Amino acid sequence: MNNFIFENATKTYFGRGCVKEYLANALSGYGDNVMLAYGSGSIKKNGIYDEVMEVLNAAGKNVIEFFGIMSNPTYEKVLEGAALIKENGVDFILGVGGGSVMDCCKAVSMAAVSKDDVWDKYWAKMSVIDFETLPLGVIVTVAGTGSEMNGGAVITNEKYKVKTGRDYPKCNPKFAMLDPEYTYSVSVDQMVSGGFDILSHIMETYFSEPDEDNVSDDIAEALMRSVIRNLREAIKNPKDYTARSNLMWASTMAENGIIKLGKKMDFEAHQIEHQLGAYSNCNHGCGLAVISLVYYQHIYSYGLYKFVRFARNVWNIQAEGKTEDELARSGIEAISDFIKEIGLPTTLQELGITDKDILKQVANSCNISAGSYKKTTHQEILKILEECY
């Protein structure tokens, strides 16, 4: 294992009924003015809104609602939330939803307090946060991003056509509540998209140095096998509590920092998808499914040992009669087969992207990962996107 320092400040409540049981107590140390943040309003249709409001009202909280947070949350929406907080003297942010809501709330927690343009200082650049952000808690309704137990926030600046993420520990939620039953109302398509996002987070960490024996890779392999197995079960029965609870915790484990300890990490596929999302507003998990497959075909020979290990230990592909190169490619083919099995797109056209002219702009605007087995160039990213088309 390489050297590391680890800390995670988020207290996590997991399991059936955790919101009813613990939310009032978790909020007791904060002020009375709570901003309830959510997306397009699905929580009002599935009963989650009523359940949360019942707790807030019983606790005597004054609720200010901030709604309409979109997929791929924009900086404009962040500023809207910050203005609402200042107008109403909000003491605490409570985000209810998936990754987009959680990411937006983290950025809002900074923008409501900072005197600076937080995009310029903390997303375009990466400055040190020398102030206390507004405290926030999250209630998770979609398993996928793992945003509930870290300080990461991916925000889109529509003006500059840039979608990028930063991870500031000061933005970690004070608490996260994960009730797997809250994910039941999510459509199968959204569940599958989120499931592939979980798998992608783990792969992006796993396919990087070091390659010598380490605990992080061992945990990652177990998590990948779990995601594959439980996603299949959840597709068969979307209300399989065991499968949904395992997916929910795997999502958190993928991004709470534990499997990243001592790892360089890649995340080039995410960088490409983020910029594709900035130009097309495509679904994140679906975009990753299309990009990851082609990206790994480009880099596997530079990390051959790990791709061979992936084929053996995650997909249980037997080495007999295969060269290492053939075995590694068999692992990538297994990803391809799984993507098709769970009904995700395999090309950008299937994803709904018909304007091929944007691909060069997307490629040229991508960040280059320092942790990849093979350092890509903007020209190669363009080639990857063209092969995805």
Rank of each mutant, 00 (worst) to 15 (best):
330 S>E: 11
273 E>I: 09
97 G>A: 13
375 K>E: 15
44 K>E: 11
133 T>F: 04
86 K>Y: 04
215 V>I: 15
68 G>P: 05
307 F>E: 01
133 T>H: 05
75 Y>C: 02
291 I>K: 03
354 T>M: 15
37 A>E: 02
121 K>T: 12
181 E>D: 12
129 I>R: 07
301 S>D: 09
197 D>V: 02
71 S>K: 10
371 G>E: 06
48 I>W: 02
228 I>P: 03
234 A>I: 06
237 N>S: 10
155 I>F: 07
73 P>E: 05
387 E>H: 09
34 V>N: 04
303 G>R: 04
312 R>Q: 14
383 K>D: 11
162 V>Y: 03
119 W>D: 00
155 I>Q: 03
65 E>R: 11
286 C>N: 09
215 V>M: 14
375 K>L: 14
70 M>A: 15
151 G>R: 02
2 N>V: 14
330 S>M: 10
386 E>N: 07
228 I>N: 04
108 V>N: 00
275 Q>K: 08
238 P>Y: 07
33 N>G: 05
215 V>L: 15
362 V>W: 01
213 D>G: 05
288 L>A: 05
254 A>E: 00
14 F>K: 07
274 H>S: 12
237 N>W: 07
85 I>E: 00
237 N>I: 06
270 H>E: 06
258 I>Q: 12
185 S>L: 07
223 L>N: 01
265 M>Y: 10
358 I>M: 09
231 L>N: 00
76 E>N: 14
261 L>F: 10
170 K>Q: 15
363 A>P: 00
259 I>C: 08
312 R>H: 12
254 A>K: 00
207 F>L: 14
17 G>K: 13
281 N>P: 08
320 E>Y: 13
78 V>C: 10
342 I>M: 04
40 S>A: 12
367 N>R: 13
167 D>F: 09
79 L>G: 03
289 A>F: 03
45 K>N: 14
124 A>N: 09
378 H>A: 05
78 V>G: 01
383 K>G: 02
103 D>Y: 01
86 K>M: 05
70 M>K: 15
145 T>F: 03
157 N>G: 09
357 D>E: 11
42 S>W: 06
186 V>G: 01
27 L>N: 02
207 F>C: 11
26 A>H: 01
187 S>C: 08
72 N>W: 04
339 I>H: 01
305 Y>C: 12
377 T>V: 06
185 S>Y: 10
145 T>L: 04
357 D>H: 12
